[in-house]
């Protein structure tokens, strides 16, 4: 016969003990003491489970891809080809500009050296969107040269930054995460702003902008490179909504340049 009655004071003591354990763990983790290292080791150990839970979603995508109708594929193929031609033409232009820039810089005897960035491709294993955090797990880790703080870029612009690594995987916080902030510059006016995440995947916000600031719906915001975290010149978002009927600061919604909910492949610029 199971014992159904327990001394309540013992329960309360146990509760307090575990509470204390949790608090100590949290403080140590926050201070990046031992516990953070242990967590990283545990994360490496449970990674197979994370790959496993990603499978149902992947299967849905696979079936959907499998059932794509032929004329859609042909259509997509034509579109990609057009786009590739366009991009190739643009690359030639960029190369010409690069050469020109180099020549001008040598003429000026400028100390600025053209930096060749290397890029690393990574796949998104899982995507986590909840009210508190928007994170992705990437299939590249510290072994591939990833480190905390590195920018994560997608085809259309800045997607986020690396916040944790283990040898095989890395976790990236997306720009829509409410802890995220990206320094940007308005392409039209060259004014600097900070884009913050709101916790909603398709909506970012501008921080502390006065109601009289020169902003228009449709303004493109590019990363400014200030703070040194994110590379300069990548699209971050487009101003989608301006509400100046708020007290001190205008409420400005920004549509992210990257479709964050459907992130699949990302590129990581690695400084050489």
């Amino acid at each position: 016969m199971p014992r159904l009655y327990r001394q309540t004071s013992a329960t309360f003591l146990r509760f307090l003990t575990w509470l204390l354990v949790c608090l100590v763990l949290m403080v140590l983790d926050q201070k990046h003491f031992v516990v953070t290292r242990i967590k990283s080791v545990l994360q490496t150990m449970v990674t197979p489970l994370e790959y496993a839970v990603a499978y149902p979603g992947k299967a849905v995508v696979f079936v959907r891809d499998y059932l794509t109708i032929q004329h859609q594929l042909v259509h997509a193929e034509h579109r990609w080809q057009d786009q590739r031609l366009l991009l190739e033409a643009q690359v030639q232009q960029v190369n010409a500009l690069k050469m020109q820039n180099q020549q001008l810089q040598t003429l000026l005897d400028s100390p600025v050296v053209e930096r060749e960035d290397k890029f690393l491709l990574a796949k998104v294993v899982t995507l986590k969107n909840d009210a508190f955090s928007h994170e992705v797990l990437l299939n590249r880790g510290a072994n591939s040269g990833l480190a905390i703080g590195q920018a994560v870029v997608a085809a259309d612009g800045i997607a986020g930054q690396i916040i944790a690594t283990n040898p095989l995987n890395a976790r990236a916080m997306l720009v829509s995460d409410s802890r995220s902030a990206v320094p940007v510059v308005n392409e039209r006016t060259q004014e600097n702003f900070i884009v913050i995440g709101t916790g909603i995947a398709d909506s970012l916000a501008l921080m502390n902008v006065s109601s009289s600031a020169d902003l228009k719906v449709g303004d493109r915001l590019m990363s400014s490179g200030m703070g040194g975290h994110f590379p300069a010149g990548f699209p971050v978002g487009i101003v989608a909504l301006i509400d100046t009927n708020v007290k001190t600061f205008a409420k400005i919604n920004v549509k992210p340049a990257v479709n964050l909910a459907k992130l699949q492949l990302v590129v990581l610029p690695i400084e050489s």
Partner: peptide
């Protein structure tokens, strides 16, 4: 009498590891 605070702590820690939150947050 079988499942109690200890199990809660264990699976809380597991959630912290998976979610990459502060270790002890979900456990708490």
């Amino acid at each position: 009498h079988r499942v109690s605070l200890g199990s809660a702590l264990f699976f809380g820690i597991l959630l912290d590891v998976f979610n990459n939150t502060l270790l002890g947050q979900h456990a708490l």
